[in-house]
Design a protein around this nucleic acid. Structure first.
Lengths: 116, 116
DNA sequence: CACACCTACTTGGCTTTGTCAAGTAGCATT
DNA sequence: AATGCTACTTGACAAAGCCAAGTAGGTGTG
């Protein structure tokens, strides 16, 4: 099936979240996404995301030699990126809550806020 | 902010899920989406979804007079649509699980099978 | 009847973003 | 030098949501 549309917009936040955990580079991010279950992300999908994020100042880039291949571009999150990610998490949460209601008819009672 | 990308692909499934609950028409679906928290969906967004769903035989259409306006197009889900929706739910679940892991670092332990 | 105002659906052009396929390039092994 | 890994780039494309404007039936007011 076609997950492309379901991925839209989500991927960006996921990539940003991976970078937030620590400086990393494209190929490694691909591995992280795969580990989390996003297995069909190709390089031609990821790299444009990285470029866009960089262009929008949400991440920053540093070039460094790899111990076993060509130069890597190491990315780290910026202040602006961290803020954007916070905002993204909130928007994602809200939308997925709506989707849960509509898709599963959960009235969202079963949340993790058991501490009132 | 721009929720357009986050909505992509999700909306289709949500609309289908609303129709699955019972025959309904565009304007009413808009209300259901709003009730669930999807408040910014305009007519120009919803109707093309309905058209597409119909074209793909996932829903079927019946015209009937409205008690207070122009003709309504009542939609109901087809067998094919129900199957598609089941598949959609699974794909959505999988992707949102991945997103949860990446976004919140939930290792997906907190599932609803606590009786395991 | 003319007009305004709801309800209800339609359409065209635009933008964003993921996908595929092919390409460039450094380094190690043979 | 040829192969094959790692690593990043690029161009053409398609899907789907968004906005704005348009069409049309019905009711109430004068």
């Amino acid at each position: 099936m076609d997950n492309a549309q379901l991925l839209k917009g989500i991927l960006e936040g996921c990539v940003l979240a991976v970078i937030e955990k620590g400086e990393t580079y494209g190929y490694e991010i691909l591995g992280e996404l795969e580990k989390a279950g996003l297995e069909d992300i190709g390089e031609g999908t990821l790299y444009p995301v990285l470029t866009r994020l960089d262009k929008n100042k949400l991440i920053q880039c540093r070039r460094a030699k790899s111990p076993l291949g060509p130069i890597r571009k190491y990315y780290s999150i910026t202040q602006e990126g961290a803020e954007y990610l916070g905002d993204f998490r909130e928007r994602y949460r809200r939308i997925s809550k709506s989707a849960d209601i509509l898709l599963y008819d959960n009235s969202s009672e079963m949340e993790e806020n058991e501490n009132g």
